[in-house]
Design a protein around this nucleic acid. Sequence first.
RNA 1: GCGGAUUUGGCGAAGUGGUUAACGCACCGGAUUGUGGCUCCGGCACGCGUGGGUUCGAUUCCCACAAUCCGCCCCA
Length: 434
Amino acid sequence: MLVSSYQKPKGTADILPGETAKWHFVEETARQIFHDYRFQEIRTPLFEDYHVFSRSSGDTSDIVTKEMYDFHDKGDRHIALRPEGTAGVVRAYVENKLYGPEYVKPEKVYYMGPMYRYERPQSGRQREFHQIGVEAFGAESPAQDVEVIAMAMQLLNTLGVKNLKLVINTLGDKESRQAYQQALVEFLRPHFDELSADSQTRLEKNPLRVLDSKDEHDQEIVTDAPSILDYLDEKSQQHFDTVQSLLKDLNIDFVIDPDMVRGLDYYNHTIFEIMTDSKAFGGKMTTILAGGRYNGLVEQLGGPDTPGIGFGMGVERLMLVMDAEDVKVPVDDDLEVYVVGIGAETNATTLEMVQALRKEGVSADRDYLDRKAKGQFKTANRLNAEYVITIGQDEMTNRVANVKIMATGKQVQVPFEQIAQHFEQVQQQLKEAE
RNA sequence: GCGGAUUUGGCGAAGUGGUUAACGCACCGGAUUGUGGCUCCGGCACGCGUGGGUUCGAUUCCCACAAUCCGCCCCA
């Protein structure tokens, strides 16, 4: 036997035929729900100019500084595989001038596909992974925030994920955020020496990140830190209040976590995460979907001042949860008819038979390995065939085949023509004869 | 980037410094020259992650590397 020396790249995964049904289920469910909310699909490149991500995500974010899967191509262009979906979509929105007056606003789009981050693989984390996400451009209204959140909740509910916890926060507008950041730095600076090394760095580069430090002592210090909620200007406060009241109107439960921040720098106003304590992650609260508002990002990437909001969901993580909760995925791999041919002379006839059945819309298959009748029946049984049609010398002569109902073992003779043209009638007759 | 564990056939899993690497499952064939189950019989690793080293001899000892899994950081 030839020993394969090839292995998939670290952190990637093959999605095999047995698993794709689950992917179809997730993707089709998402498409259907997005359709109902009037979001349309957008497809953008898997790679972009490096700066599309570095400028949008923030030069100090971890994604840019250590997780970007980037390289220089033969034309010495600095390319990066997309680490997340929003930046590329915004770039496409701007480049194709989807903000133009001929488009109905808001522009609502969704995407699904692979994302890339250069990091150590572990449970629920790969270098190539998949996200399903949405973006809505052009609406500043809190109702748009709530629509996006409600759609996310409906998606996860429909997919059978239990124990969902919606956590929201606001970062306010630019001014509010700056005022808060200043207050936070002033509060933290006296504690600088007590902070963990990581948080000391964060204080320099992105002070808000100190808030969600995992370090216990950091957490103690942060307990008394000022809250963003006390630094919102009137407009920001009003936006956040309206988001909350609309969520209540829709009976969507949520909690506010004023310490929640985001890994990407472009967010402002409403940010949210949907978490679950599924046993897939050892019962610890884990985020499977996250998003927020990013007013200003479109402008940052060269477009007109345009508000936006969206979310991204990690598909592999979602599926770990679905597995743990034993979500039943509809599988559509049932075989209706297996055609058994006996003897090499039946080769053409059995092929014609399966083709005729397929043209009727019946799923049909046959043997391709020159197996004997017994072997073919075993295969039909393994494939869970509903019917087996047997064709041998006599059948070819008389143009009448044996049709066997595998569940009962009952077998009847049916003319070729009837099978090839009206298999549905054959099925009907067999059922009535039961 | 740091730390831990693991790596024997398609899958699970024994095992030993020395002629043919258990066993189970799955699969293939036969008993039944045209019919699914059971049973019985037979077949199925030029090979024990990769590369070196020690040795008369290595899957078994040593070293390096890789991959996988898990944790930290961070995140979906």
